[in-house]
Design a binder for these strands. Structure first.
Lengths: 401, 401
DNA sequence: ACAATCTTAGTAAAAAATTTATTAATGAAG
DNA sequence: CTTCATTAATAAATTTTTTACTAAGATTGT
């Protein structure tokens, strides 16, 4: 008897099942009525899907909900006894981290990290594979309990095909995702780091239940993850949110992208550190001088901590950059009219120091009727955002078995 | 027997009926299968709706479609004998035009126009009502044959409530749409001029069948209509696309909005005309000197025609402005990664003269991998775009009776 | 030329999903 | 403490979709 092609009905059923698990993952516990509204499916059919998932051990019935004025509803949640795990990988230009979560967002296997400067060198792929293989092996989790590996990385990424056009290029222009999946023997999903940060803010951070959210990822560059109409917006070919390279700088410095005047040339953390080092060499005194000698942390992180703690040199350099980012944010607000802007990424460490000049730039460059419609906050997910986003990526795309 | 509240089933049926008419209006003629795909409803149910519409005289069966390799399908189109009309009104800061179309986009009543500089004066509303009442009266079309009045106008517009926060403000902060509807005895729909221009490009212009399209409306200011995921994007509170006031200008001139450095201060047609007049006063010779004396046309239109025809002064002033608009477009491309950008509005008259410096700015300010994903064209709908958009607004919102 | 085969359209019957009606459970008001 | 209002859950009715089947025309190969 040969394998039947999936019928339309069966496909629908699998989608429904996935949606139930997905929303229980996002919201911890929900009633049938709530699930029905979130999934846009009728109560009877959601009920039957939930019953099936209970039979499979994926879902558990829990206490009754608080009363809302009528009969109290039964609440459902993901069964903590069902062993299913998410391997989350978060990369940036300099560091790669990995952690394993369960479906309740508890850390199952503590994070490991690798100093790993991304290049266009094809050997990078082998380094990444070796790192992940080692990590997975020592975790001792059976493969059938791992739902997939989600990886956030910088670069122009085609999520459909699983190709990163900037880093990790395969010789034959093949799919990085498929290659990793084959090598690691698990489903792999890749996406842009800023997009995953935005996803995390949407599901577990400041953007919960909102529809139009922009997440500015301040770090080595300034990424932008966009939530439009409640879901990730990637643009026509997946390159939307290239905030770092909009022409905004007054200086004429050449950017790494080959153009002049990009926002990045004046706001990249690397540039700010460089500027601080130059000032120190010129004899300006600063806590940074001592901090930079501690090589256990990246200079960029030292710089942000110093700024947060009020070191005058760091604050002054950061403020200037933040004002320019604020000008960029003013541009975003005029074009997109978002409900919320979240300042996330490494830069969020500096918190208020960063926000003051951004707010000032918004006051100066925004029509107040428009700016009034947008709230702006600093992320409180901090450096877990990208890891959570990678986990969400898996939950939104994997097959639950 | 009292009026029953609309059941869910009945609502669905009305929506389906509207969708059939809407897509036939957009595509002129379609098969059941095509309709089914566009509406995302099954073939049997679409068939029954089409049959009902034929019985009502709204829809006509026409010849068989061209063969696509199998049995040829019956094509359906809107019945030209069914008398239903759309009153389209297109306003800008200086001129208001009106025309009446039928559902095949034929002009039923020739366009009338009114020189009418928008102010914040409440009397503006009375002027508009009087103008429209007169026009409707002389058209001699019975009210029951008019499906509605669609109006495109500048300003910050709340389409849900039908309020324009910038112009035509009612004393009691009431709904302009409802007020006009009551006064004119017809359903009225209002929207932003640039949004309607974008809608026209999406349905009848360069953006047909595309998903991510930006329409830059070059005129007295530079509006932006955004198509995202195949439908109009208005942002969280309806103010998205405020392209005119993004901080891009190097000059520090004060803008009408109260801020400095807005794109508009260097690119508004009004500013360009002013600049030309100053140059002429300084003794520069130009065809414009003569043209400006002809008061039958607006100076801005004279200016654009002169530029199109190669007058050196007009070309030089326009080119400088267009380069800045191009810089703004480069910003849009980096953020939105659109499939297509359409340059529309009055400015489109200048065509190639406008495009050359825009293209140049794109080359200078765009990362080519991103810019390569975007096509940029000049609209060929010209000044009918906003009128067509207003008609679409009616078709997308009215009740067909 | 003309079957045989392939493709697409349209229709009927079967299956699935939604809607509506009904019953259940709870809190608040009198 | 009973009645009423409110929400949840379930059963029955209705609608919609899916699948299977028939129709109509195009293409290919002999």
């Amino acid at each position: 008897m040969q394998a039947k092609p999936l019928t339309a009905t069966l496909k629908k059923y699998h989608q429904l099942r996935r949606d139930v698990i997905k929303y229980l993952y996002f919201h911890k516990s929900l009633t049938i009525t709530e699930l029905s509204k979130l999934i846009h499916k009728s109560v009877p059919i959601v009920t039957s899907a939930v019953m099936d998932l209970i039979a499979e051990g994926y879902v558990l019935e829990s206490a009754l909900s608080k009363s809302t004025g009528g009969r109290r509803a039964v609440m459902y949640l993901i069964n903590p006894a069902k062993k299913r795990f998410l391997v989350s990988v978060a990369m940036d230009q300099l560091v790669t981290r990995v952690v394993i979560y369960d479906l309740l967002n508890n850390v199952r296997q503590g994070s490991a990290s690798l100093s790993f400067t991304l290049t266009e060198n094809p050997e990078d792929i082998e380094i990444l594979i070796k790192f992940l293989k080692g990590y997975l092996q020592q975790s001792n989790i059976p493969v059938e309990e791992i739902l997939g590996i989600g990886i956030g990385m910088p670069g122009f990424i085609n999520t459909k095909q699983g190709i990163n056009y900037t880093f990790f290029k395969l010789k034959n222009n093949g799919s990085l995702r498929n290659h990793l999946s084959k090598e690691l023997g698990l489903p792999v999903f890749i996406d842009n780091d800023s997009s995953l940060t935005a996803l995390a803010e949407l599901r577990f951070g400041a953007g919960q239940n909102l529809k139009e959210v922009l997440v500015v990822n301040v770090g080595w560059g300034s990424g932008l993850g966009m939530i439009i109409n409640g879901s990730l917006f990637r643009g026509h070919s997946g390159f939307a949110g290239e905030f770092s390279h909009i022409p905004l700088s007054q200086t004429n410095k050449l950017c790494s992208c080959g153009k002049r005047g990009c926002l990045e040339v004046d706001t990249s953390l690397l540039v700010l550190v460089e500027r601080a080092e130059k000032e120190i060499a010129n004899g300006v005194s600063s806590r940074l001088e001592a901090l930079f000698k501690d090589k256990s942390k990246l200079p960029g992180d030292h710089f942000l901590v110093a700024a947060r703690d009020g070191d005058p040199l760091a604050v002054s350099i950061l403020s200037e950059a933040a004002f320019l980012i604020g000008k960029g944010i003013a541009t975003l607000i005029h074009i997109m009219n978002p409900e919320l802007i979240v300042v996330a990424g490494r830069g969020a460490i500096a918190g208020k120091i960063l926000m003051a000049p951004i707010q000032q730039a918004m006051n100066e460059f925004c029509i107040s009727r428009i700016a009034d419609q947008t709230t702006i906050v600093v992320s409180d997910l901090a450096d877990t955002a990208e890891l959570l986003g990678a986990a969400i990526l898996i939950v939104e795309n994997c097959q639950f078995n």
